[in-house]
């Protein structure tokens, strides 16, 4: 029987990795009828021929290592956060094409890092920053303060103009549930697709502060829909990051784990999604924050650094008359 079906046997042999005679035999005995069936439906359904090119179009072209390296050298830059400690720790800052997550307890400096990076990236002409705000924590006033600090060498009119330019390059969108977030991400993807063709100023940093407050109300319980929503948000974020060379920064909070020790929220299935995971802590009543790497694509975990959140008062605000 095996000999009579020689061609099929060869075909299956390439599929079965071990070449175990009994397993290939059992496959062979099943093979003819399935192939027959396949042939019949193939010839019957002329639509398949029309669909096939579409399926082939659908998948991405393959790349080899050299091309990947070239892509990462040309398109995946580091965006500085502005905090020297973090930038040194990460070898330059937030990497484009990657999803970076910051976890930390309340008031540990997560939002400050987000606001500072937004201001710096918009200031250094890297591109447009998109800020998705879920806890009303986007403070334009704080951004104005940071820009004021950054442009201390300028004065008067030039400073004002610079402030306007930087702040016009930061877009903020308030989102209060996970479905709205998915909607925003789909819209964004659609816009980016167009932009790739028309070549407008590109979005280079997408910040979601905080993603966990959207996910906590839907997570847990008996159903798994919550986890599904979480993972699909993660997949879109990573896709956007990779295809359009965006650096995505999300924040996550911490919950009490076993023995009262704090651990990042959102659980195990989220843990595998971000490329880079940083943990922030701050001592009560001081400006000094500690940052440590919990996960990184190419760096050792456990390294730590310190940075200082400046709380200089904002002169530009008080002086501006409207």
């Amino acid at each position: 029987m095996a000999e009579s079906n020689e061609p099929q046997a060869k075909a299956t042999a390439s599929v079965s990795s071990s070449g175990n005679p009994t397993s290939s035999l059992s496959r062979v005995s099943k093979c003819p009828e399935t192939l027959e069936e396949g042939k019949r439906s193939f010839s019957d359904d002329a639509g398949f021929a029309r669909v096939q090119p579409m399926i082939e179009d659908w998948h991405q072209p393959w790349l080899n290592g050299v091309e990947l390296l070239e892509d990462s050298n040309h398109n995946k830059h580091f965006l500085p956060t502005g905090y020297e400690g973090i930038d040194v720790l990460l070898g330059g800052g937030l990497c484009e094409g990657q999803l970076t997550e910051m976890v930390g307890p309340s008031s540990s400096g997560k939002t400050q890092v987000c606001l500072y990076s937004a201001a710096l990236v918009a200031d250094k002409h890297f591109g447009v920053v998109m800020f998705v705000d879920t806890c009303n924590s986007f403070s334009p006033k704080r951004i104005a303060c940071i820009v004021d600090q950054l442009s201390s060498s300028f004065s008067g009119e030039a400073k004002e103009r610079r402030l306007k330019r930087v702040m016009s390059n930061i877009f903020c969108h308030s989102v209060f549930d996970i479905f709205a977030l998915l909607d925003v991400l789909h819209q964004l993807e659609f816009k980016l697709k167009q932009q790739v063709k028309s070549g407008d100023t590109k979005i280079c940093l997408l910040i979601i502060d905080s993603i966990s407050s959207l996910l906590t109300p839907v997570l847990g319980g008996k159903g798994s829909e919550g986890r599904l929503l979480m993972v699909s948000a993660g997949i879109i974020l990573k896709k956007l990051a990779n295809e359009y060379n965006i650096s995505v920064l999300v924040t996550n909070h911490m919950v009490g784990g076993e023995g009262g020790i704090l651990k990042p929220a959102l659980g195990e299935s989220w843990k595998s999604i971000p490329h880079v995971r940083l943990q922030l802590t701050r001592d009560q009543g001081s400006n000094i924050c500690n940052v440590s790497i919990l996960k990184h694509t190419f760096m050792a975990t456990g390294r730590t650094a310190k940075f200082v959140i400046h709380s200089r008062s904002c002169s530009v605000q008080d002086g501006r008359g409207r």
Binding site: P140, F171, C172, H173, K191
Partner: peptide, 14 residues
């Protein structure tokens, strides 16, 4: 050319 429906620039918000 609006980046996103419903988004505001930081300048307008300020």
């Amino acid at each position: 050319n609006a980046i996103l429906k419903g988004a505001q620039t930081a300048w307008d918000m300020l």
